[in-house]
Each structure stands twice: as structure tokens, then as C-alpha cells.
């Protein structure tokens, strides 16, 4: 079972959507991520660089015809961090939903 661990780096909404997208895929191309997350080239590059520096994402440049394409994938450290973050979020929601205990009289 994944250990719940809130991850400050993943939590901002754009980065969370980016990591969640990558977590559901083996890899995704830069153009796909840009379309789905509705980000500019520079904004997506910045997010990917931040995650890459943390060791959560790996990028690979490939030559496709005459065009250079960038693929991103989640590393195992990134996947663990994402799963831990999701567990942490679920725990917060579950704690809030649990009935509060009456203090003993």
C-alpha cells in the first residue's frame, strides 16, 4: 500500500494535472501535454524542468522526420511521489468526512 505523503512540489494545480496525466501514460509528447493542459510552450517547459530537477520526470528528445519531438515520462520516484500525494489528499478528505468524537465527560 502506498504511504500517504503530501508533496508540495506536485500540489499546485497545473503541476498536479501534468503529473496525473503522465501517471496515466507510459509517456506523452510535449504537444499532447500542451494541448490537454492548455499551456504555452514556455509554461509547460518551466513545469517540466521543475519536475525534472526534482527527479520526478524524465524527458527525451527524439527526431521524427525533420522535426524534433520531446517526450516526457514519470520516473519511478515521480510515480511514488504522485501516489503518495493522492493518498495524502484522500486521507485529508476522509478525516474531514469521519464523524468527530465527543470528548469524554
Amino acid at each position: 500500500m502506498t504511504k500517504a505523503r503530501f508533496d508540495e512540489l506536485i500540489h499546485p494545480s497545473t503541476r498536479l494535472s501534468l503529473v496525473a496525466t503522465l501517471a496515466a501514460a507510459d509517456w506523452a509528447e510535449f504537444a499532447f501535454l500542451k494541448d490537454r493542459l492548455q499551456l504555452s510552450d514556455s509554461a509547460l517547459s518551466k513545469q517540466l524542468t521543475t519536475l525534472e530537477e526534482a527527479g520526478y520526470v524524465a524527458t527525451e528528445r527524439r527526431l521524427s522526420g525533420s522535426r524534433r519531438k520531446v517526450r516526457a515520462r514519470l520516473t519511478s520516484a515521480g510515480r511514488d511521489a504522485f501516489n503518495g500525494h493522492i493518498e495524502a489528499l484522500r486521507a485529508i478528505v476522509a478525516d474531514a468526512a469521519a464523524p468527530t468524537r465527543e470528548p469524554p465527560a
Binding site: H11, S13, L16, S17, A20, T21, A24, I86, L89
Partner: peptide
Amino acid sequence: ALDAADRAR
């Protein structure tokens, strides 16, 4: 945040 992650998936 959970909804956003689920939407991405």
C-alpha cells in the same frame, strides 16, 4: 485536487 487528478486520468 483529487477531482483535477481524476479528470486528467
